[in-house]
Design a protein around this nucleic acid. Sequence first.
DNA 1: AATATTTTTTATCACATGGTAAAATTTTTT
DNA 2: AAAAAATTTTACCATGTGATAAAAAATATT
Lengths: 223, 223
Amino acid sequence: MMLRLISKLPDNYTNLREFMQKKRSRIQIINQQKVLDAGTEIFAKYGFRGGTIDQIAELAGMSKPNLLYYFKSKKDIYLAVLEQTLNKWMQNLMEWQVTGTPEEIISNYIDKKFEFSRDHADGSRVFANEILEGAPILKTLLGEDLKRLVGEKTRVIKGWVKEGLIKPIDPIHLIFMIWAVTQHYADFSAQIETLTGKTLDDDKFYKQAKKTATQIILDGVLK
Amino acid sequence: MMLRLISKLPDNYTNLREFMQKKRSRIQIINQQKVLDAGTEIFAKYGFRGGTIDQIAELAGMSKPNLLYYFKSKKDIYLAVLEQTLNKWMQNLMEWQVTGTPEEIISNYIDKKFEFSRDHADGSRVFANEILEGAPILKTLLGEDLKRLVGEKTRVIKGWVKEGLIKPIDPIHLIFMIWAVTQHYADFSAQIETLTGKTLDDDKFYKQAKKTATQIILDGVLK
DNA sequence: AATATTTTTTATCACATGGTAAAATTTTTT
DNA sequence: AAAAAATTTTACCATGTGATAAAAAATATT
């Protein structure tokens, strides 16, 4: 299931649609990806308002007009970055197992979230920046697709509570807790690195962080 | 204990020092506070790079040159906002009780952090933005004052583990977990509001969030 | 009330930033 | 190899943004 953020935007929002849908040449594929990668890195640090086309162009190793040949505006770059990021983020949530014990399902989801924080730290930060700005672009999408998905998950957890499989906790806050903890390692990595000298790229640190978080949450939730 | 971020900056960084230290007139006190408040709100949303003096001036209800009469540059406003915010943030950590059971101390700290997220949501977001940008200004301070403070706390928690008062968990990750969860409600309030229709300003929601987080963490940590 | 001081406004400025047009170059197709 | 199509570069431009100078207005001091 793809989110197709771009196709859900109002018509006046962007011409990105046709731009991305056309069959793309070899060079286009390479360079659009370069821009997307650079854009992700810049928007992760500075957000939409704070990031500049010049920064992205330099990081992508091309001139500004050349970059604008691939994406016709800053907003188009941002939308493409957001779409890519959000798809990965939602993918993660959608991979939430449907069978298994609460322990298996929760620890597996925490696993996946930690993986995401390590492997897509910039994506996580792009997302964080978008939310900090008030989620101007994502608001609608979050209120539809994500809300539905989260609704499904809370119902599952509520079921566990009713069946007495886990302690009586509020499902939505458990989900927020998992998001908070896992994303913290990506979004606040600058602080974490300053305090510990480590990031999730350090495998020992990664395992220790995951182990501690998983242990506390499971022990806090399981009976 | 005040952090005095500004006085710790290299000389070439700012003239804010003398500016803030002079005895201030009635109007100065009022207007500097107006700017600080507006600056906090703008930088919370857009970060340092993304926020503009014009936005701050408009929100503060004064002209741009007038604003620049009170703070001589955008960076000066940002530094003052950061100092104010960071002082509050560290205050919170310093209020960590020194006596009591692990249960009391941890739940009390979570309490204080939730209070902060509710009462200083914009400050929390300013802080988040600074970290996302790579903590260019705060890095040194975090590596000194905060590191020392955190070191104290981890030693306390390690003591609890040794004495068998709590489960064997890694103290630093417990602290990160508490920060993550509590700050998430401030930093991601846009997402939370979209999903639940509520924010921490809703007292019932506030209590439920705090209760769930506290319960899971305590149950996850206490023996 | 007159004077000194502080605050606000008006008028600018230089540089940054998003974006465009058109020529030059490179790549692909025939 | 020539023609067509795609890509890159060069040269701009309008607006946004941080910042300043100096005059005008308001406030405080004598």
